[in-house]
Amino acid sequence: MSEPLIEVAGLTKRFRVSAGGSGTTGGSRTLRALVARRKVVTALDEVSFRIGAGELVGYIGPNGAGKSTTVKILSGILVPDAGRCVVAGRVPWRERVAHVATIGVVFGQRSQLWWDLPVIESFDLLRDIYRLQPAAYRETRDELIELLAIAPLLAVPVRQLSLGQRMRCELAAALLHRPRLLFLDEPTIGLDAVAKLAVRDIIRRLQGRGVTTILTTHDLDDVEALCPRVLVIGAGSILFDGSVADLRAGVDRERILTVDLEHEVGSFATSSATVVSAAGRRVVLRYDPTRIPTPRIIEEVARDNDVRDLYIEPQPIDELVARLYRNLELEEA
């Protein structure tokens, strides 16, 4: 890791929310402020981490865990209550204009482009907003158009693009000013499988260009496919900081063994593993390889049954993370 691009220490943010207000009633905040009592919710509780230049970091956590609060503080649009936060030598919210000129943000659910304008006109407006040199702008733009394969989309108004097409244009728009730091917020949400893979491929290639990237997502497949490093946040604290492999090792070492039999499953019993399911011709087992070595369990299953095929997988990462959150809740209770 080279010198850190982002340094966060003891970052704390609290919000006042109305007690019991579900927020879905559609009522006005002004009135609720008068009617309801308020309580304080801690969105970030002394969060600290460092991210080096050029890293691609997955930032995951359940809703309300503090993900978007962190991203908002790092991008300079939210002021924390306490703590230190330096991005590329600047305190984001103190020098908002200078800071945001060096970052790019993509929201999966919200467009950064002008809805009624052809894509290329949005790009040209961004050139003027970011005060880019015409020559440098053209160079970057053409590079991105090629990289993201959006040449056929440039003349199309944004509202007519499919979600996958729009996402590629959003990525280009966020990179026109050559940011050092890129925030991707749910970039694959709502995309079909093909578009999702395309976007992942693009993110990977961008990373090769040296852009430091923070990916917040609910799609853990994205994280597993892209991020060498993952930060897990829950209830305002960093629960885990490391590689996906370490995340697996730290939380839970269990593996999943799926066995396909030649016959219908009758009653299936084994002393060394937990039966997750047993139906039709398929049995799914969960076991801990540190307690029973993998060859042993295969041997055991093959001895007692007429096995046609079997395969072993790690636990799906969703379950790992769910387990991490559950552990946290247990500690809190």
Partner: peptide, 24 residues
């Protein structure tokens, strides 16, 4: 480093606020 050039490549004179407003 390619990424950091963004801030250096700016044109403070040509893109004044009024001009940007007119562009909008």
């Amino acid at each position: 480093m390619a990424a950091s050039r963004g801030t250096l490549r700016t044109v403070p004179m040509a893109s004044g606020a009024v001009w940007l407003y007119l562009r909008f």
